[in-house]
Amino acid sequence: MPVWLDDVLWTYQTLIHSLGINGLLALSMYVVLAVGQLSLGQAAFMGLGAYTGALLSLHTGLPFALVLAGSALVPALAAALIGLPTLRLTGVYLAIATIGLGEVLRVVYVNAEITGGALGLSGIRDRTDSWMILALLGAALAGCFLVGRSRFGRAMEAMRSDQTAAAVIGINLPAYHLGALLASAALAGLAGALSAHSSTFISPNEYAFENAVTILSFAILGGTGSPLGPVIGALVLTALPELLRPLHDFRGVFNGLIIVLVVLFLPRGLLPWRMKRLGGAP
């Protein structure tokens, strides 16, 4: 590895960590949007992963890989609890149930002793490094591309453009919806555990509703035609407030405006590519 690259990684470590983590979160949102559903619980799943990872690291001597696996598993279980009943219904139900999940988890974090109450948990050992985060992001991205090019990917594309038609040709919609939601929750949980270890402390407010909206804005800005879109959206929206300080104070206004404008005027996002063109499979 060239020395300058190592220097860059070291100097911009915090930024690179948050770019990678937000990229993972954007992918987790993409996975749900790709089957035509909307989850507003990405921040909640991230929080579950973060608390699971932090507690495992603080109270057990498990290797980091197992901690990450646990942090992906717990949010997936929560996703199954609310996904199983809602995914047979229209998308609105999942959206509402995931908002509710986020809020109820916040109440639990604030009130439970083990999660450290409103102060959260601190003193989590930093067990991440830039390469690990970027490699996980790359693996997730590659996974999304591979799935996208497979039979599953074509089924997902079919149900995204027309649910009824997809159901008629024999695609088991609820199974795909549930699979996507579980994968998405696991990815968000993974990102949460990484961010908890990278920042060494967590508190309940980091996983509030506003963060779920921010995660959605990554995916919407980038467009959901290909997994690359949301990741680029995340890169832009993470780097911009860092570069333009004034933007930082107006982040809520800015992210909200982006969602409104993109949905109204660019319904397919900044990068309206289809998977076919990149992947080659018809």
């Binding site: 804005s217 809520g252 909200g256 969602i259 409104v260």
Partner: peptide, 12 residues
């Protein structure tokens, strides 16, 4: 999604 963006915008 539009109302979601709008709600964040308005409250901010």
């Amino acid at each position: 999604m539009v109302t979601l963006g709008a709600v964040l915008l308005l409250y901010s």
